[in-house]
Structure formats: C-alpha cells, structure tokens
Design a protein around this nucleic acid. Sequence first.
DNA 1: TATGAATGAGTGTTCATTCAT
DNA 2: CATGAATGAACACTCATTCAT
Lengths: 204, 204, 204, 204
Amino acid sequence: MKEKKISVEDKKLQKRDAIIKSAIEVFAQKGFHNAKISDIAKRAKVADGTVYLYFNNKDDLMIQAMSELLTEKLFELKKRLTVEKKAINKLYRFFQIHAQALTGDRNVARFITVELRQCQEFYEKYPEFTPIADYIDFVEDLITQAIEDGDIRKEINPRAYAMILLGTVDFVVTQWVLGKDNMSLEKTIEQISQVFQLKTALLL
Amino acid sequence: MKEKKISVEDKKLQKRDAIIKSAIEVFAQKGFHNAKISDIAKRAKVADGTVYLYFNNKDDLMIQAMSELLTEKLFELKKRLTVEKKAINKLYRFFQIHAQALTGDRNVARFITVELRQCQEFYEKYPEFTPIADYIDFVEDLITQAIEDGDIRKEINPRAYAMILLGTVDFVVTQWVLGKDNMSLEKTIEQISQVFQLKTALLL
Amino acid sequence: MKEKKISVEDKKLQKRDAIIKSAIEVFAQKGFHNAKISDIAKRAKVADGTVYLYFNNKDDLMIQAMSELLTEKLFELKKRLTVEKKAINKLYRFFQIHAQALTGDRNVARFITVELRQCQEFYEKYPEFTPIADYIDFVEDLITQAIEDGDIRKEINPRAYAMILLGTVDFVVTQWVLGKDNMSLEKTIEQISQVFQLKTALLL
Amino acid sequence: MKEKKISVEDKKLQKRDAIIKSAIEVFAQKGFHNAKISDIAKRAKVADGTVYLYFNNKDDLMIQAMSELLTEKLFELKKRLTVEKKAINKLYRFFQIHAQALTGDRNVARFITVELRQCQEFYEKYPEFTPIADYIDFVEDLITQAIEDGDIRKEINPRAYAMILLGTVDFVVTQWVLGKDNMSLEKTIEQISQVFQLKTALLL
DNA sequence: TATGAATGAGTGTTCATTCAT
DNA sequence: CATGAATGAACACTCATTCAT
C-alpha cells in the first residue's frame, strides 16, 4: 500500500519533471513566444491538457522551468566550487565554470541569457520571480568574504564587483549565443579571465 | 515650388520618423511579440496600412527601429566624448555616459538591453544585422589607443576588456530595467565606475 | 463500450462531413475567393479553428470538398446507369441523368461548372488533383464499348465524342447556373438529347 | 484647335485602351481575384488613381475588358468566316477557327473559359452583361440558315445544336488551359471536328 | 486630368486554454 | 488523474478606393 502510494506520487513527480524538462528544451530552442504547449506536451509524452494539471498556464510553466533550471545550475556550480577553500579562488573559478557550464549547451545558454530577459511581463506580473538575484547574492558573498580574507581591497564595493563579473559572463555568452562573435567562446573567456586576474593580482 | 517640394519630402520623413518613434516606444513597452502593428500605427497617428508603405513587415520595422536608435545613440555618445582628448579618459567617461544615456528613457533602455537579445530569429534571418558590433568595435578602438598611449598595460586584450565594460553596463541597466535592483541605478553606476578606476589606476 | 467507441468515431465523421457540406454550399454560393472560413464554420456549427483540425487550409478544404462531391456524384450516376445493359443506352441516359443530377441543386451545379474551373492555381499547386478526368474516362469507356458492340461507328474517336458529350452538359448547365439562358434547363436538355439521338440513330 | 481637341480625345482613348489592354493581360494571367489594380495600372503606365477616372471600380473594369475582348474576338471571327458562302460551311469552319483563335494565346483562352464563369457575382450585379449570348446567337443563326439551305435537317433545334458546338469548344479549350489533357489541343480539335463532320454528313 | 500616398476594412490561420469523457 | 478534440480570440498584412495636390 505504502509503496503503491509512493509510486503514485513518484509518477506525479516524474510527469511534472518530464514536462519541466521538455519545457526547458523547447523554450530554449524556440524561445518563449514561439514555443507551443503542444510541442512541450508531445516531447514530455503527455496530453496537452495534462500540462494544465501541473501548471496554471504557459507563463507559470516558463517561470517554474526557469527557476528550476537556474536553481539546479547554481547548485551544481556551488558544488564544483567546494574544491576551492579560499573565497578569492572560488571567485575566479566561478567565472570560468559558469561560462563553461553554459558553453555545454547552447540552448540552455540561450535560455538564460536571452529568454530570461524578455519577460518583463513576468517580472511585473510575478514580482517574487527573481531568478538572477540568487546569483548576484552568491557572488557578492564571495567577494565580501575575499575582502574579509584580505584578498580584495576593502575599497571595492562587493555588489558592484559582482555585477561586473556576472555582466561580463552574460555579455560574452550572449554574443556567442547570438552568433555575433567570431572569436571562439573558450578563447574569449580565457582572455577575459586573464584580464580579471591581472587586475586582481594588483588589487591585493 | 521649392518649398512645397521640401515640405512634401519633409512630411514623408516626418511620417517615417513618427512610425519609428512609435515602434521604439511600443516595442520597448510590450516587447516585440506583444506589440501590435495597430498600436504602433495608432500612436504614430497613421493608418495600419501606412506602416507597410515605409516598412516591409514587422521584422523590418523592428530592425530599422533598432538600427536607427543604436546608431543615433552611438553618434550622440561619440559627440559627447569629444571633450576628452585622451583615449583612457574617453573610455572611463564612456561607461558613465552610456549608462546615463540609457537612464534617461527606461523604454529605450529596455529596448536595447532586453529586446535586442530576444531576436535570435532576426540574427538568423538577417545576418547583416549586427547592432552591437559597432559598440564593441568603438570601445575596442579606444582601449587599443589607450594601450598605445601607455595608459593601459599592453598585456590586456582590448576586445576582452571591451566586453567587460559593455557587459557590465548591459547587466546593470538590465537589472534596473527589470526592476530587480533595489539600489538606484545612478549609485550603482558610480560604484562600478570607481571599481574600474581603482583598477585602472593600478593598470598604469 | 463498443457503441461508445463507434459513437465517438461517428461524431468525428459527422463533424468532418458537416464541414465538407457547408464548404460546398458556401463555396458554391459565394465562390472560392469570397467564401470565408468563418462562414463555413458557422454553417457547420463548429468553431473556426475546428475546420483546421480536419483540413490543412482553405485550399485543402476546397479540393477535398470537390473531390468528394464529384466522386459521390459519379458513384450515384454509375449506380443509376446499371439499369441499362447496353453501353449505347447507358451513354444516352448518361447525358440526361448527369444534367438532371445537377439540376437538383443549383449550388452543386455552380460548384461543378464554375468553381471547378477557376482554380487553375490548384491545378498548378496540386497536379494530382484531376477531378474531371474520371468523368472523361468513364464516358470514353462507354463509347469504346458501344463501338465494340457495333452501336457506334468505329471511325468515331471515343475521347473526342466523350468531350462533345461532357462539354455540352457543362455548357448548358453553366448557362443555366449563370442565369443567362431563358429556356428552361429541362427543355434544353431534352432538345439536345434529341439531337444526339438523331445523330446516333444515323450512326448505326 | 480641332486637331488639338482630337488629339486630346485620342489621348483619352489611348489611355483607356491601354488600361483595358493591361487589364486583359493581367486578369488573364492571374485571374480576377489575384489581379491587382496597381499591377494593371503599372503595366498601362498610369497611376493607380487614373484607372478610376475611366472605370468605376475593379468589377467595372473586368466587365468592360471582357466585353471588349469578346466583341473583338467575335468580330475577327465573323470576318474570317466571310470567305465561306454557305452557312453550313461557315458553321464547320467556326468550330476550328474559334478553337484556333484561343490556341494562339493561352492567357486569353484562360480568360474566356475560366474567368468568364467565376463571376456569378457580376451576372447578378449587372444583368445586362451577357458576353456569351452573342456567340450563341451567332451560331444559332448560322444553323438556322443552314437548315433553311436544306443542309441540316429541320428536326434539329438550332439553339440546341449551337450549344453542342460551343460547349464542346469550351470544354476542350478548358481542359487544355487547365493542363489536364495530355493530347495536344490541335489534335483534339481535329478529331472532334471529324466527328461533327461525320455526323453532319449524315444529317443531310 | 493625373497622381500616388494614405486609408482601413477584411480574413486565413494559430494556439493557449477548457472540459466532456 | 489523463486525455485531446474543440474552442474562439487575436493579428499581420493586403489592396481597392479616395482625395489633396
């Protein structure tokens, strides 16, 4: 009985996860407005109507898909950073790892850099939806720690520097996603990374 | 006679400009996909069909509106930078002026930071549409000059540094546009500017 | 269970048939270009979108409506001709029955004589759409048989004679449909029929 | 003065004729509904608005273009038939000449066989528009004369026989225009012509 | 007369959402 | 819970017609 119940709930979760997974893929490939619920349902192997058993509407699906994707990516990223002990080192690996994480899947990269923005409607409708805030907070914390460690000058504003780092990743990945940068992404990341390290070396 | 001719041509230009202006406003407020041609026409005080006398279709209107806006903004920006003689100074004023220019009109800011991205479709359909490339090139040139002037270390890759600068502006403005940054835009800009100047002081 | 299943499938067929029926009526009354999908949908008592569940587009609906109508009419016609044993008799009844069949429904008549032609676009787009070919083949076969029976002189080209017969029906019905023939359709048919019989009597 | 006046009127006529000529060409090529006034105007080298100085609207232009074309064709046809003295001979040459006249220009043929029909709207709106009636009357007269000459049996109804002849031409040309008849038009015409002559020989 | 820029009504088609089964 | 057939609102774009010049 118990097992059965669990199995039923598992099925529920499985179905919801399948839809989220499909949604991320389809939204990423086609963009929010060009993505069709029926495409997402088909890919998740459920009926169109089933999507509405788990999500209120297309907006809701988008928001939940994004939240989940970003949460997951941030979680993975944090895990990979545990190998570094010092905040300053975590910081400079963050840049590379974050960029490389996106490089692995152009669709996901597109989803995060492009789609995430176009949804002002969402931000207005759902003010609690603050997907990038967690990233900013995380990086800001690292910088604060590095300052406390004496690895970054205390004159530097942590939030400001966080935005420089995140903004740069975002911009570079966007240019790559939109296919407007002839330089290879990896090479660009490397060059920028060097600039940051040059500067930071001097910031000590 | 001559005046009449001019007046007719002026009217044409006025009408086209009015449509472009409306398009920028409506696209910025609603986003490309939610913007209706009839809204744009109404705001420009012309008939729906008139839009199609000046533009091939909605895509074309979007692209021309963007191109014109970006060209105009870049032109203004360059003009304002002429007061500075040294490249390094131009560079550090660029950041502030560019950000302030966007601050002046939230719609314009949203248009450039948000809409400009969502149009991967455009970039695929119209590869000749490279609106940000001019900005990157301009900043890159300034950096190259500053390096030649001996004001920035020659180890720094100009393109990489250009992307750091532009990416940061873009990110900050985006956060402001999407209403997710509680700090005032101006203050953020100021703080980031200081970080850059700190670094660059050390870059000498 | 079984009945339920059948009933569902029946409903589907009923809906498709209702749309085809409406399409024939509306296309016949207004002509292809002036017929609105919404008119057809309304008459079939379905939503506009429902039409697109059963047909790809307006062209497709037109082609399928025509095909179905012509197939059905030809089937009925053949059935009614079975009472005649000899090909020559079938042939001379064909003319009358075909004409009378059209007389029964001016809309159907108009559809077949008028709309069938205006669709050169269709013939170019969909070369496999050959609605009248079956009619010509059928009549040609009858004539060939009549020749073999010795009821029509072997000097007569079957295809040529088939076109005379079909062309005449078509023309007469067209004149009637377009309301340009004051003589009653029935009377005209009768008179022409006599001419054919006169001739054929002599053809023996 | 007088010459000038005439010249002005000539210009008027020239312009009107140019528009009619263009209309026939464009209507024939694209069909009534797909033909654009602007296409016709461009081909006639006048402004769009100029068309409306000579014709009330698109319908009117269509009707006048058709009338003029048919009148002209019938006039030419009658002239070519004057070489024959006997009605019966005129009759049997009519079939060939009429068909050949159409063969010369597939667009004109399409115009007459296809477009002429689809305009039930016209026939309803403008009952005085009876373009084919003249053809029927002409052929009917020839048959009546042939009967009077003793070349066709008096049992034959002239109107009925006229419709057989005209219907056959119409059908054959239509099949050719719509590209559904593999046999060459000329050959078909020849074969049908033989059938008629066979029969008529016996009608004496 | 002649022009052609401007108009705006008109429509095929899509797709998020619902609900009877 | 799950389905997927049905719905119908929404919208880009066309083009016959007008009218100020």
